[in-house]
Computed example of a mutant assay.
Amino acid sequence: MRTVVVVGAGTAGLSAAAELRRQGWDGRLVVIGEEPEHPYRRPPLSKEYLLAAAAPTVHFPLPDDLGAEWRLGTAAVGLDAPGRAVLTGDGDRIAYDGLVIATGAPARRLRPELAHERVHTLRTLADAAGLRAALAEGRRVLVVGAGFLGGELASAITAAGGSVTLVDRSPLPLLAAAGPAVGRWAAGLHRAHGVDYRPRTEVVGIADADGAAAVRLSDGTTVAADLVVAATGASPDTHWLRGSGLAADDGVLLDHSGLAAPGVAAAGDVARAPQPLLGGEAVRVEHHSSAVAQGVRAARALLGLPAGPAPVPSFQSHLHGRRIHSVGFTGRRFAFTAVETGARDEPGLLGEYRHRGRLVGAVATAPRHLRSLTRYRQILEASS
């Protein structure tokens, strides 16, 4: 290969680019990024970046030997797969021999009729900077969505002295991602720390009222908020691939070698890869550690190198001074068994998830369980 183009200048894209160089590939490397930023870490954006006295640095240090041509602030708008070229919004046609698709998953927005100047999303560094400025001016916050992002936002804002109303259409927080047992634990934690948590509730209208937003909810109440944050998930950025011939329904579909087509790989939130732990089912995994591992696999796939075992997903999240750790696959679609439910001096939860009787994941909400989680990781890695 003479030229590799990486579309997406985030964690997965940087990981793929760095692995190409680590393997000794010395061709032309072009990295296209829609944001005007060099790669940066997203996890801090919902925590310390928002509330620290001075915004911390989140950009990754770039390897000295990366030797990439950076096309930042440039969006990919099309892919000519037969002609092996990426089309950009500024009219360029960038030819490639190998392509890594790492365009991530932009934040979902509220319905168009709920658009309002006080409504924010949080996905990019620019989003975080805007939200940080808004938080400095108003402390009454309504967060829509009680998943990982919404929960971390509610936790951080409450810890800083803000007033948070957390609404979600689901009956429990983190339900889809971690299941009902963890959801009940998280709901109790939110309420114990003063969050006005409202399950089975949606936003039905937003209007101006006395210098704030009057947010009408499906439970019949109206909440005054200085700002509203939509934390309702993300959708894979595949619109620019329409007409390319790639299978890109709910992410770019990869085969077991890590390729979507000859010379085309994908990594990160946009990739849908077969998972041995789930019997080969292709799923997307939206976690930082997975983006790093998938970037490595994408580079190796392009170079024709063995990818090695599929990485076992993992995540950690912060809620009101507590951490949730998991390995493998978790969520309400899997059968859950609580192994340990807590102790007086350190309440918490340790649980297992199974798919068709097979262990596929585990979760821990107390530090004393982390050693057990390490053992679960070893078991899952051995069986994947």
Score class of each variant (00 low, 15 high):
L166P: 02
R300V: 07
T124A: 08
V141K: 12
L277Y: 01
K47N: 03
I32S: 07
H239V: 13
A187W: 06
Q378G: 14
L62R: 14
T158G: 15
R371M: 12
G91N: 11
A366P: 03
Q23F: 00
S244F: 04
R297G: 02
L254K: 03
R242I: 04
A156P: 09
A247F: 00
G245W: 02
G295Q: 03
G13A: 02
H120A: 12
A75D: 01
A181E: 15
D219Y: 12
L217Y: 11
A81G: 05
G33Q: 08
P112F: 08
A136N: 07
V229L: 11
Y197K: 04
S384Y: 00
H369K: 01
Y197M: 00
V223T: 15
L303V: 05
E286C: 09
A213P: 06
T337N: 03
G361C: 09
T374M: 13
G104F: 05
V223P: 12
R140T: 12
V143L: 09
A248E: 02
Q316H: 12
P171I: 06
R371K: 15
H369G: 05
A54L: 14
Y197H: 05
Y376K: 11
R71S: 14
L131Y: 11
V119M: 03
T201Y: 10
R108L: 15
V363L: 15
A107I: 04
G78Q: 11
T201K: 09
R200V: 08
G98Q: 10
A146K: 01
D250H: 13
D80A: 15
R93G: 13
L380M: 13
R198W: 02
L45R: 07
R356A: 15
T103M: 09
Q23P: 00
R191H: 00
P36I: 04
I206E: 02
T341C: 12
A156W: 00
T103H: 13
P44C: 11
V141D: 04
L319D: 00
A75M: 09
G220C: 10
G89H: 04
R139E: 13
G211E: 12
A230F: 01
D249Y: 01
V141A: 14
T3S: 15
R333E: 08
P274S: 13
R140M: 03
A261G: 12
E286W: 06
H38Q: 14
D226P: 06
E202I: 00
A298C: 07
S235I: 05
S384P: 00
P82G: 14
D249H: 14
R371W: 07
A247E: 15
L153W: 03
A301Q: 09
T158W: 07
R300I: 02
T103I: 13
A224F: 00
L131K: 12
H256Y: 04
D168Y: 01
E37M: 01
A298D: 06
E117N: 09
P173N: 01
G104Y: 07
L277F: 04
H193D: 12
A271Y: 04
V252Y: 09
L175T: 04
G280H: 04
E352P: 04
Y353T: 08
G361E: 07
L189D: 04
H369M: 02
A81P: 01
D226E: 14
R184W: 14
A267I: 07
G205M: 13
R28A: 15
